[in-house]
């Protein structure tokens, strides 16, 4: 059987190994710990590195070290740990190193709780650390996508030499679903030539310091050029029954699954409702959103947060149609019924 019943968190690690990831550096935190556990289980027998670091700060800097060798490597955590990693992510982006960072969001701020939330959008999508950088952010909504998008994240990271996030919530991490691996070919690990390998022909420099303001500005401009290319090429999304929809629901991760059910139920009551689901949060599929602005009368953004994605949607929509927001926080997952009620009111 090439299908397996798996938690999303386990699917991440299988996807990573198939993608040729050779090193995992992490620190336990609920609800992301199964990722470290799966890595501890599978990486060493596959001749790959697993290190449980002393902190998230150490683990992201280990990632910097391994990524600087031009190999595929990763770390995973949840909100509080991602906060700690931010300085390191900024260095990785500044030094233009590829790596994959998985964030399984939990309730915040502070210690919050371990229930699923989507309050890390800002710290992950907007850069989070210091300086003018951006990370690509994938937003899986199933165990299958936890595997597939992690696999893809390594390609994207290498293609642009840039950190790439897989941003999911506790729900997607903990949920078990069938995962099919048959379409994923194992990628042979290799060391990219720009990396430091401890050999005579790899005396390269991994660095993010540029003392001269003009030189640093030029470096920044080069980064912005790269981000522009990413915006043009890497946005992915999924539509569901949007063609004739008057009201389009927008959500990512577990929320998008709930919204899909809302669309079905709303359609059963004769309402023209559809779903737009970004699969990348940065870059967002701007053109597609603009196209939908042309056909729909209203958007409703639903998030398990105080409203973070909705800011970006409103920036794109520029007031052309109303963009409503509904959010739950604290680890409460909105029910189909409660969103359906709002949907009916807005229709």
């Amino acid at each position: 059987m090439s299908k397996e019943l798996l938690k999303g968190n386990y699917a991440v690690i299988k996807g990573a190994l198939l993608a040729g990831c050779v090193a995992y550096f992490g620190y336990p935190i609920t609800p992301a710990s199964e990722i470290a556990e799966a890595a501890a289980y599978y990486f060493p027998p596959a001749g790959r590195t697993f290190v449980q670091a002393e902190s998230e700060i150490a683990s992201i800097n280990m990632v910097y070290g391994a990524a600087g060798a031009g190999v595929r490597c990763m770390t995973a955590s949840s909100g509080p740990g991602i906060s700690l990693k931010q300085e390191g992510v900024s260095y990785i982006a500044g030094a233009e190193l590829p790596c994959v960072i998985v964030d399984i969001m939990r309730g915040g701020p502070g210690l919050g709780n371990i229930a699923p939330e989507q309050g890390d959008y800002h710290q992950v999508v907007k850069g989070g650390g210091h300086g003018n950088y951006k990370c690509v952010v994938y937003a899986p909504n199933s165990a299958q996508e936890m595997c597939d998008l992690t696999y893809k994240a390594f390609d994207t990271a290498d293609k642009y030499r840039n950190p790439v996030y897989v941003l999911a919530d506790g729900f997607i991490g903990q949920m078990m679903e069938q995962v099919d691996f048959s379409h994923l070919k194992p990628i042979e690990p290799k060391k990219l030539e720009w990396g430091v390998h401890g050999t005579p022909d790899s005396k390269n420099l991994i660095n993010s310091i540029y003392l001269d303001p003009d030189v640093l500005e030029a470096h920044n401009r080069k980064l912005q050029e790269k981000y522009k290319k990413i915006e043009e090429n890497e946005a992915i999304f999924e539509n569901y029954k949007v063609d004739d929809a008057d009201l389009i629901l927008i959500g990512y991760g577990i929320t998008s699954r709930i919204l899909r059910s809302v669309v079905d139920e709303a359609r059963n009551s004769g309402l023209k409702v559809g779903l737009f689901r970004p699969k990348t949060l940065w870059p967002l599929a701007k053109d597609e959103i603009n196209r939908l602005v042309g056909s729909a009368k209203k958007f409703l953004v639903v998030e398990m947060s105080n409203g973070q994605l909705v800011d970006d949607i409103r920036l794109i929509v520029e007031g052309k149609i109303p963009v409503e927001f509904y959010g739950r926080m604290g680890g409460n997952v909105p029910t189909v019924d409660e969103v359906l009620e709002i949907t009916k009111k807005l229709s």
């Binding site: 050779v22 090193a23 550096f25 590195t49 290190v51 670091a53 700060i57 150490a58 683990s59 800097n61 280990m62 990632v63 910097y64 070290g65 391994a66 990524a67 600087g68 060798a69 190999v71 490597c73 300085e87 390191g88 260095y91 060391k191 430091v196 390998h197 401890g198 050999t199 790899s202 005396k203 390269n204 420099l205 991994i206 660095n207 993010s208 310091i209």
Partner: peptide, 26 residues
Amino acid sequence: NTGNYQAAHGRAPAVATGTKRVNPDS
């Protein structure tokens, strides 16, 4: 005249760990 990294403040041993683990002969 070697391979070189510049590390974040205090994190050199973590960076060194990362690179050594994937470059075991270095």
